[in-house]
């Protein structure tokens, strides 16, 4: 009898844990990006794979941002998610991340999953890296989102000599049904920080 009660309790606990895990969107990759202050709305997020030892940036279109393979795959993953987007396009047209440098702490960034889940991030800071400072974007913090683009155009070499990184932190998530409900605070994560 007691054993049966324990089994039922364990099953209920497992179900509750599954619900909590699903509630924070684990395992659900983002498919769209919105940055209201940049007037970016529902920009498609694609996977940017590593081909022949490098991220295949040629796959990145004018209206897309790429999730760098081997970085975080979804919010609250082990690693931070890194999204790269063009700053400029052919003909010196602005790319999706053209105004990334204008983001300020507190600005909102939203990621959307395929099934309607929305994650709300807030910008914390921005900094620049050399192109070879790859390890710097591998942050062991699943609550972070890094937005990456080129910076510092170098006329003689006709290349961008730096990479601009905007770092945002997850502050809320919402299962938005029809897009009317406000984001609610995230439960405290059990992950070690």
């Amino acid at each position: 009898m007691t054993h049966g009660v324990r089994l039922v309790a364990a099953a209920a606990l497992s179900l509750a844990q599954i619900s909590i895990a699903q509630g924070v969107g684990e395992g659900s990759s983002p498919v769209r990006l919105s940055v209201p202050s940049l007037r970016l709305r529902d920009v498609p997020v694609i996977l940017l794979p590593i081909i022949n030892g490098a991220w295949d940036e040629a796959r990145l279109g004018a209206r897309e941002v790429g999730l760098l393979q081997t970085t975080g795959r979804w919010p609250n993953d082990t690693w931070a998610i890194v999204l790269a987007g063009h700053v400029t396009l052919e003909g010196n047209q602005p790319g999706p991340f053209y105004g990334l440098g204008s983001l300020r702490p507190g600005d909102s960034v939203f990621l959307h999953s395929q099934d309607g889940l929305v994650w709300h991030y807030q910008v914390k800071r921005q900094y620049s890296l050399k192109p070879n400072q790859v390890k710097s974007v591998y942050r062991r913090d699943g609550r972070l989102l890094l937005l990456l683009t080129c910076a510092s155009w170098d006329e003689p070499s006709q290349t961008y000599s730096r990479r601009l990184v905007v770092e945002a932190e997850l502050v809320a998530q919402d299962k938005r049904l029809g897009g009317t409900s406000a984001p609610r605070p995230l439960p405290l994560s059990s992950k070690a920080r």
Binding site: L89, L148, R163
Partner: peptide, 9 residues
């Protein structure tokens, strides 16, 4: 990879 992706044209 050895370099971050180049995202400027």
């Amino acid at each position: 990879p050895g370099n971050l992706p180049g995202t400027g044209r």
